[in-house]
Design a protein around this nucleic acid. Structure first.
Lengths: 243, 243
DNA sequence: GATTTTATGATTGTTGACAATCATACAACT
DNA sequence: AGTTGTATGATTGTCAACAATCATAAAATC
């Protein structure tokens, strides 16, 4: 089953120094928003498909109210798209969207790079990024492209979070979610290869170095041209459908 | 009265080529979200204050459901802050928040500047920005600092929207809302002067020019150090309270 | 008087029902 | 056959009531 029934058991309770646990401070709508978010990002709902609030409520074992509230959150975030009186949909992403997502990613990551590289000590971020790159290397050898993509995203998320800006990270979370949706479009075009690992290692090393301009140029190169990648992916897919 | 009762009359209906108007496609919750948003941004709710959903529902003449949905939107946007079971609050912005808002503004506007300046023809954006600067000049002479601040924000919004990225503009709308909240903190520190107008004119001219690096430097200079401005404002305010 | 316990009122969170809107199927008309 | 009108069912939007939680005041205890 796609969804688990939502209960209020909070598995992340932390104990304070006296062994007393904090009580859960999450609403049903918050939990549901997370569940739906993960389902959308995992590709469980095809692009363009409608989310039926009655079905979701039944599946979660709750009333429609919290489901509606959860969806309002995701709509505002940009992950879902509402058409009043007609329903809530997973957006269909166009070429324009794809370009836009990558443009904005680059803007955010560029800002992060500049802030990080203005610091004297970059050992920690270098270490963290190289560690993720090593993980990617292992997964390229024996995992699926989706797993590699997830590590790729983790690398970039680490980079942005290292900038230490709450708002930059929040914006990036949304953009990464949209990136993940885009990846379902790019499926055949995602380059899961040793060269990809090397690109990430190069980025990590440049960030540890002193040439900001070169780092930003490499970041831009790293993103490539998503539209061309998509076209290539479509060509490959059409080629195999015709055969 | 702070709020008007919300009806479904859509004042922005557009006529198609046959004079046939589109029907309204906005829900109560959407309208309410806008009303609350404007109220918060106008300073009607002090920073840190609680929004009471029962009172709001009564004032709008609707049930609590749409009010809750509206608030979920604004919470997700970052304009309001929810504490489960305790209520929804206008955030209290700290020095850290102030710095963060301005950092992120600069990141977004910097990206917009770079994209705009990669274009050959910049006459339109130059014209639009100079027009807003001229408006600011008039308002400096005879308006309130709040009005000047609004024009200032319009200048920057024009700049970002000229980049033509849906997502950049969406992110910037949120950041501008937070900027507006910050401005209530900066009240006495907002420099409503002829020099401010000149700074904007300079930015417009640099954008029309060819030196990207110089433009980005001026943009950074233009934002100044918000913390120092806040401290100065607080000092001025404390000075007049002691007298 | 200080601290703990209990009661109360206010507010938030959720539910289920009713109202409104839309999409589709079917019937009637040209 | 094509178009228009009507009915029906599905889904979304809103409402009012109940449940749950919190903050505060009052009472009890030390």
């Amino acid at each position: 089953m796609l969804f688990r029934a939502v209960t209020m058991k909070d598995e992340t309770m932390k104990a304070d120094s006296k062994g007393i646990k904090r009580l859960p401070r999450v609403t049903l709508s918050g939990r549901i928003a997370e569940e739906i978010r993960e389902a959308v990002l995992s590709g469980a709902f095809p692009l363009g498909s409608q989310l039926n609030e009655m079905e979701l409520a039944e599946k979660f074992g709750v009333s429609r109210g919290p489901v509606r509230e959860a969806m309002q959150r995701l709509i505002q975030e940009g992950l879902l798209h509402s058409e009043p009186h007609r329903g809530v949909f997973v957006p269909e992403l166009t070429d324009t969207d794809l370009s836009d997502v990558y443009y904005v990613r680059e803007a955010i990551e560029g800002a992060a790079v500049q802030r990080i590289m203005a610091r004297q000590d970059r050992k920690d971020i270098h270490l963290a990024l190289m560690k993720i790159a090593k993980q990617m290397e292992k997964t390229v050898a024996q995992g699926s492209w989706m797993q590699v993509a997830d590590i790729d995203l983790a690398f970039h998320r680490e980079l942005v979070e290292s900038a230490g800006s709450f708002r930059l990270s929040r914006m990036y979370a949304t953009v990464q979610a949209e990136t993940k949706l885009c990846m379902h479009m790019l499926m055949g075009g995602y380059r899961s290869s040793k060269a990809l690992v090397e690109e990430h290692e190069l980025l990590a090393n440049l960030i540890a170095g002193d040439d900001v301009a070169a780092t930003l140029r490499e970041l831009s190169r790293h993103f490539g041209d998503p539209i061309r990648i998509l076209r290539k992916a479509n060509a490959v897919r059409q080629g195999s459908e015709a055969a």
